[in-house]
Nucleic acid binder design. Structure first.
Lengths: 199, 199
DNA sequence: GCAACAATGTAGGCGGTGACAACAATGTCG
DNA sequence: CGACATTGTTGTCACCGCCTACATTGTTGC
């Protein structure tokens, strides 16, 4: 029989919650159900997460850390050229976003809510990475000139929108790579020599 | 005292639900609370909506109808030129999406779920409108060539993404018009003569 | 070594919810 | 006017999040 103290309850909760989130979405996630799965009493989670929202925030936080890791890995693998790096980033972002739709929604939805300071902080690195990529693209003249903020926002919005459309079933997941490529082409300026995949 | 039969309960529920959705989001919407507001018993809504989800679907349905109306009105006001019409559509879409964020989320989230056939049908006109606009743009050579489906999806995704970013607080609502313009510029090909608003 | 204390888990209860069933009032139509 | 469908009501169930009081275990200072 299990010991009185679980010992790793916080970790166990996060793992179970992550799975539940992926399988059934944030709405369906129930603290009591997680407790049952793990085999502790229904009030035990309270010791580690004062309320349901704080558990969701914790998930969003780790989500941003994972996103940052994956984006950096993608850039590292992409070689030196700007366009390949941009393409790799866009693809990696959309892949992350569609691999765990509910997590992405949680990450985005959490940022503007009160009490989510830690989530905002956790989102920093990933956003910085993408920001730098855009600023660099403009400096190198690969992206359209103009207000860097606006161009960057629109470009980020495009990635985000593609992810949303795949997640909601409006677009087949198989189109992911093609759409990422199309998006990159739209935003790359200058001669479209080798970057185009045929048209 | 009120009569035994309310008489307009279905309509009253939809109105109250719409307001609740706008003010507090779909998650917070409670059938019992709506019933209390209207002044009927907690089980009365069941006669008109078998469960909570079906009420949400109904809201999504009317949402698509309203979206279609607003898009057509925007196009009609925009005059003859292609670029002004495109800009008007993009702006109108984002305005609709940010005016009632929770409704948009509901409309999008409902489409791919089982039992939402009516929602899918209701979304037809608005999507057709945008589709035609894109096809026309390609025919007139104002949009990039290439697979029309892909270009259209990416463009739609950009609108959707901008709306999401405003809704989640990542972008100030005041930037709406500028971002819509920036997006249009990105997708318009050829000489950017009069369409640019300065840069 | 042990007493005080902090950390962590348990038991029970409160008000809320959606879903369901049985019943009551009202409208409709042969 | 009586049968029937429609629409509300009451009551109940299981579930949820949150809270309080209590039990067990780990830690630390004397």
């Amino acid at each position: 029989m299990p010991p009185y103290h679980h010992g790793q309850l916080r970790t166990a909760l996060l793992e179970a919650a992550e799975r539940s989130l992926r399988e059934s979405g944030a709405e369906q996630l129930s603290l009591r159900e997680l407790a049952r799965e793990i085999g502790v009493s229904h009030a035990a989670p309270r010791r580690h997460f004062p309320d349901r929202q704080s558990l969701l925030y914790a998930l969003a936080e780790t989500g941003f850390a994972r996103l940052d890791t994956q984006l950096r890995a993608a850039v590292a693998e992409a070689g030196e050229g700007y366009v390949p790096q941009l393409r790799a980033t866009v693809t990696a972002y959309i892949r992350f976003a569609t691999d765990d739709a509910a997590l992405l929604e949680l990450m985005f939805g959490s940022k503007h809510r009160p009490g989510a300071e830690r989530v905002v902080a956790a989102s920093g690195p990933a956003f910085t990475l993408m920001d730098e990529l855009i600023v660099r693209g403009q400096a190198e003249g690969r992206l359209a000139a103009g207000d860097p903020e606006r161009i960057g926002i629109v470009m980020f919005a495009t990635m985000q929108g593609i992810a949303t459309m795949i997640n909601t079933g409006l677009v087949r997941p198989g189109l992911l790579d093609d759409l990422a490529e199309t998006a990159v082409e739209q935003f790359i300026s200058g001669p479209r020599e080798s970057s185009a995949r045929s048209g």
